[in-house]
């Protein structure tokens, strides 16, 4: 094939595909001592000592006999690759392939009513959080990757919005794990089971 034909052909092939990357950094990485605090909780440690080492938590909730404090950090990467089938004579179809992955650190410490550390749990891991493939008309209308539940704003901002929520959600507010009285939940926790089941989402 003559060079004069290869160039536009290559360029045309490039035009038929596209790649989109999204990177989210949610919060700072946890202090190196976070894992050690969870692995060997010492009851002589007070909440004030922990707070001076790790800073304020992102999640707080009262529990019977005390309270829990939670810290978390997320890095989310979303990759989507799209192709058009126009070169094959199928102008009305596009193919999309996507995948998302996360790097997540989480630390949950339990304190007694006397503000003493009584337990903890930590994890730091890389996860694939899903992906998909699609063949759609003209353009990709349905997203093949969804990380909205992970990248959502923290629930503390929703403080005064409760009265405007749908009735099942409002009635269940006392049981929600983000109100400070009924436990805590990490980002990305499914709402179809557990404390938010009754919200009928």
């Amino acid at each position: 094939m003559a060079d004069t034909r290869r160039v536009p052909l290559l360029a045309l092939a490039l035009m038929l595909s596209g790649c989109t990357q999204w990177h989210y950094n949610l919060g700072e990485s946890l202090a190196p001592e976070a894992a050690a605090l969870a692995a060997a909780p010492a009851t002589d440690l007070r909440a004030g000592d922990i707070l001076s080492r790790l800073g304020p938590p992102l999640r707080v909730s009262a529990i019977p006999g005390g309270y829990v404090l939670g810290w978390e950090s997320w890095q989310v990467t979303e990759n989507v690759l799209g192709f058009s089938l126009g070169a094959l004579g199928v102008d009305f179809l596009s193919i999309d392939v996507g995948r998302a992955s996360t790097r997540n650190e989480a630390l949950l410490l339990t304190f007694s009513a006397q503000h003493r550390l009584v337990g903890g749990s930590w994890h730091g891991r890389d996860d694939s959080v899903g992906g998909g493939r699609s063949v759609q008309p003209l353009v990709g209308l349905v997203p093949v990757v969804d990380v909205d539940d992970i990248t959502a704003r923290l629930p503390q901002h929703d403080w005064g919005r409760g009265a405007l929520e749908p009735l099942p959600v409002g009635l269940n507010r006392a049981q929600r794990p983000d109100m400070g009285q009924a436990g805590v939940a990490q980002r990305g926790t499914p709402t179809g089971t557990g404390q938010q089941t009754l919200e009928l989402r």
Binding site: L14, W22, H23
Partner: peptide, 19 residues
């Protein structure tokens, strides 16, 4: 860039807690 698109979003949390 049409063929390649990239977005980076950094979120920081300023916070304080008082007992």
């Amino acid at each position: 860039l049409v063929l390649y698109n990239r977005m980076q979003i950094d979120t920081q949390y300023d916070r304080a807690i008082f007992f």
